[in-house]
Design a protein around this nucleic acid. Structure first.
Lengths: 209, 209
DNA sequence: TGCAAATGTGAGTATGTCTCACATTTGCAA
DNA sequence: TTGCAAATGTGAGACATACTCACATTTGCA
């Protein structure tokens, strides 16, 4: 292994490519990075490999991207910009509950499809630079915890579809973990509000199935 | 910066400490790691520093932990084991909806408290080894996206508490992103079920506030 | 007491990110 | 056309850090 120093900031391209030539080269760098991420994941992607595949020197790479993360981030930005437009379009002219229902449902499908299809997004989101193996262990842990919840639900609702209960309980549990993660990443006060809101949401789902 | 090779597996302690002496030393290593993580985060934690602070050589560290992640994971395991017991106790004897309500609510509070108080858990969960800065950017993006949802809700429910709507929309949105991440980490079929379940859950929350 | 297994050591290796001094090309004004 | 500054390009190597390994020491036990 090598080092990964404490990181301080996200830096934007160190220098914007102003000439045609460099713009094309930057494009090639991004394409190479995208391909490598699709093949091996951003963690295994090597800067030297990106440079080689793009047909540029490693120095050129660092001319336009201050560090490795900047490349990944630049790729991610394209999708987020794209999806932002899509979101605003989908939710723009909703006037009633029925409209919200349809638009929201469609939006989720589109998003899900995007995540499924786009290797770069998959890589970035399926653990944000983290370990695949570690994530699997976390999931196993989470499943074990959700079991307790499943047991409760099955006791309270013996005649419900078991698969549906499993899904609900696992989702509720995972949403809980996600809510906690979120809560500790924001201001304490907002975090408290979010956790309280999660509690309501989860209970509504658990009780009124 | 240094290298971070492709990672393959999670390995357990390379060798279990069988003598009293080594058990104490392993304990010191974990304590040192825990302190360093609390101070600077696991990403900035250096193996050499852990060894030094524990008063052992770096070779000893690797005698019992196959790699850096193993240390972090060993620390995390203590908490997960602890919390697992807590969960099973809280959900053990629930027989009615009222009981579930109370027990679940309590459970969430305990969990939230644990996350808030425990630096190691904070570190592991607040982005699983990932960038703090990147996470902040993601959050900002997510907030921007949630804005569209907030706008819709305010249109549909002009007289509701704005702060509550903000919280709900942001939470629903974040839960959506979390659900997608989850969905692409499991088998496709289960992923589809989870996304569908999220959709129901989110709409229930959005419509029946 | 002796010896094998367990444990301890830290200089050295491997592998990666990123820098820097210098070469080349481009746009443009004189 | 020429000259020159700014933009761009290069890659050897500085640098940082995880991890290994050949060897030293200590322990449990017959």
């Amino acid at each position: 292994m090598g080092a990964t120093p404490a990181n301080e900031q996200i830096a934007s391209p160190r220098r914007a490519p102003s000439q045609q030539r460099s713009r094309e080269r930057v494009e090639r760098m991004l394409a190479a990075a995208s391909a490598l991420i699709a093949e091996q994941g951003s963690d295994a992607m090597r800067m030297g490999e990106v440079a080689e595949r793009a047909g540029v020197s490693i120095g050129s790479l660092y001319q336009f991207f201050p560090d490795k993360r900047a490349i990944v981030w630049a790729l991610a930005e394209r999708y987020t910009a794209e999806s932002q437009a899509c979101i605003s379009a989908a939710l723009k002219d909703i006037s009633d509950a029925e409209g919200l229902k349809r638009a929201f449902s469609e939006l989720v499908d589109i998003y899900y499809g995007l995540f499924l299809a786009e290797p770069v997004m998959r890589d970035i989101w399926s653990g944000t630079q983290a370990d695949k193996a570690l994530r699997q262990l976390e999931l196993a842990d989470s499943r074990a915890n959700a079991e307790f919840l499943i047991a409760v639900l099955k006791r309270l609702r013996p005649d419900a579809d078991p698969v549906a209960l499993d899904t609900t309980a696992f989702l509720v549990w995972q949403m809980g973990e996600a809510a906690m993660r979120l809560a500790i990443s924001v201001e304490r006060q907002e975090g408290d509000r979010l956790v309280a809101a999660y509690k309501r949401m989860a209970l509504r789902e658990l009780l009124a199935e």
